[in-house]
């Protein structure tokens, strides 16, 4: 009994268990989402639920889990740099769709900010909570910076950003199919604007062209939100 407790306290402290849990949960989630075509079978969503359940049962605080899993989290940086590859491979198509992308960027970005703040306000959200939701479609580091700048709560924005990505990844395919859009460039680009990296990850799973355009949408919306959101709020 004593040995088991000592073993557990060792495993809970070290990254090994949490890294293994993260990879195994993802592989299980990936297998489930590959087999089931249901939109809710999103690999990020399933992994988060599986790991969240383990943490809840074992009483391990999130901070300790993250200490171990941060090696996976760290790879987001190199993954962002990697987006240069599909960007470069699609250079010809990008040149041809410069104007459609510009139009979609402004339409998508303004709708994301405006509808989020508008709906939240209509439902009674006020103050710094309302400001925290404005940059939620931008990628996390940019959204958090914007939230600080306009007087929102950065920790709340971080949660809203991740939820936006998961919601976008879950609703994108059924929504776009129901509305009959078949252009992978347009579909991917719009999802990248509205649902940043998690939307982009979903787009790469569906279609490589959609993935490339989603990566560009995400990058451009990060820059536009950083400029637009503080500008919009300085008007009020």
């Amino acid at each position: 009994m004593n040995n088991a407790a000592a073993l557990w306290s060792y495993l809970a402290q070290e990254p090994l268990l949490w890294l293994t849990l993260t990879l195994v949960a993802y592989l299980a989630a990936d297998a489930i989402s590959g087999r089931s075509r249901h939109p809710l079978a999103n690999p990020v969503l399933i992994s988060v639920i599986l790991i969240g359940a383990v943490l809840l049962v074992t009483g391990i605080p999130y901070a300790r889990y993250f200490e171990g899993a941060q090696f996976v989290h760290f790879m987001l940086g190199p993954a962002t740099v990697s987006l240069a590859m599909p960007l470069h491979a699609n250079l010809g198509r990008l040149r041809r769709t410069f104007l459609p992308m510009l139009a979609a960027l402004f339409a998508g970005s303004l709708t994301a900010i405006g509808a989020a703040v508008g709906v939240a306000w209509a439902l009674g959200v006020r103050g710094e909570t309302l400001l925290s939701i404005a940059p939620k479609s931008a990628t996390a580091p940019v959204a958090i910076g914007v939230a600080e700048q306009i007087g929102g709560l950065p920790s709340l924005t971080a949660v809203l950003v991740i939820l936006t990505g998961v919601i976008g990844a879950v609703i994108a395919t059924p929504l776009l199919n129901a509305c009959g859009f078949t252009d992978w460039r347009a579909r991917g680009f719009a999802v990248g604007i509205a649902a940043h990296g998690i939307g982009t990850a979903h787009a790469f799973r569906v279609n490589s062209t959609a993935g490339a355009f989603a990566g560009i949408g995400m990058g451009l919306n990060a820059m536009l939100t950083a400029v637009l959101a503080p500008l919009l709020f300085s008007l009020f």
């Binding site: 889990y65 509808a115 439902l123 009674g124 991740i162």
Partner: peptide, 30 residues
């Protein structure tokens, strides 16, 4: 790419209480 968002995603469960009583309104807005 989805794998890399998992550690941050688990944080959402840990921080759901930051929503306070605005939870349903924020989810609807998102």
């Amino acid at each position: 790419l989805s794998l890399l968002f998992v550690p941050a995603g688990v944080g959402v469960i840990a921080h759901l209480d930051t929503f306070g009583r605005n939870g349903p309104a924020l989810i609807a807005a998102l």
